[in-house]
Structure formats: C-alpha cells, structure tokens
C-alpha cells in the first residue's frame, strides 16, 4: 500500500463533474479530502490517496485525462 498527497485543480468546465466518485468506483483507491475550495470558476482540493502503486498511478492518469491538473502536494522541482 502506498499513499500520496495530491493537489487537484479543476478547470471551470469540470467543477460540476463527479470525477472523484468515478475515481473511487473505477480504481481500488481510497480518498481522504483534507482541504478544498470550490467557487464558480475554479476548484481545487488537497487529498490523500491510498492504494497499490499501480492503482494510484492509473487513478492519476485518469484524472489528468479528465482535464484535472494533478500535482504532488510535496516537492517542487527547481529549474536552473
């Protein structure tokens, strides 16, 4: 079992879609939301996802394919 902290950013046109519930249905992962802010034109939330490595990876790929920006809560690469 792995667990990873993620920040999800929803573009305006995706805010109303139940993407997270689809994630839970389609992949064997558990989601624990810690913080969220959803307004009319932007939505973001921070959550912890727990599951097997490949399930987490596929869940992330799925969310990205739905137009959600998925970034790790921890770590930032420094360019140059």
């Amino acid at each position: 079992m792995e667990s990873i902290k993620l920040k999800l950013i929803y573009p305006e046109d995706k805010i109303k879609e139940p993407i997270l519930s689809r994630v839970c249905k389609n992949f064997d992962v558990e989601i624990n939301i810690r913080k969220a802010n959803v307004t009319e034109n932007i939505g973001w939330l921070e959550l912890e996802m727990t599951g097997d490595e490949d399930q987490i990876e596929q869940a992330i790929k799925f969310m990205e394919s739905q137009g959600i920006e998925v970034s790790p809560l921890e770590g930032q690469i420094f360019l140059e």
Binding site: E2, I4, K5, I60, V70, S71, P72, L73, E74, G75, Q76, I77
Partner: peptide
C-alpha cells in the same frame, strides 16, 4: 510533476 511525485514517494 512526475519528477516531484516520484521524489516525494
């Protein structure tokens, strides 16, 4: 983002 995600893992 992938590099970061791997780094924190």
């Amino acid at each position: 983002d992938d590099v970061n995600r791997l780094s924190s893992e």
